[in-house]
């Protein structure tokens, strides 16, 4: 079994790799993470738990682009742009 820390690490790096390139959503991320570790090693529930911790630790944040995305933290948007 992959440890929670391993899943969190991989999940974080996956989101990092998408930054500025693709708005990534949870179902897509989840599938990628499970594919990477293999179903025997990592379940949907494990990914969910890892994501919840990363969000609670504010290492990742939710975004919204016509549906919810997962992103790296950023400064507040377009208020005065």
């Amino acid at each position: 079994m992959a440890s929670l820390e391993e899943i969190k690490d991989y999940l974080f790096h996956k989101v990092e790799s998408y930054a500025g390139k693709k708005q990534v959503k949870v179902p897509h991320l989840t599938q990628e993470i499970i594919e990477h570790f293999g179903e025997a090693e990592c379940s949907k529930k494990d990914v969910k738990e890892a994501l919840k911790e990363l969000i609670d630790e504010e290492k990742l944040v939710y975004g919204y682009y016509g549906g919810t995305t997962i992103e790296l933290p950023h400064v507040e948007g377009s208020a005065n742009a």
Partner: peptide, 23 residues
């Protein structure tokens, strides 16, 4: 404008960011 992403810690829902175009 929409544009910004805001929320409370840990939640992905419940808050909708809204900004005016004439600050």
């Amino acid at each position: 404008k929409h544009g910004g992403i805001v929320g409370v810690r840990g939640y992905g829902g419940g808050i909708i960011g809204r900004y005016s175009d004439s600050p």
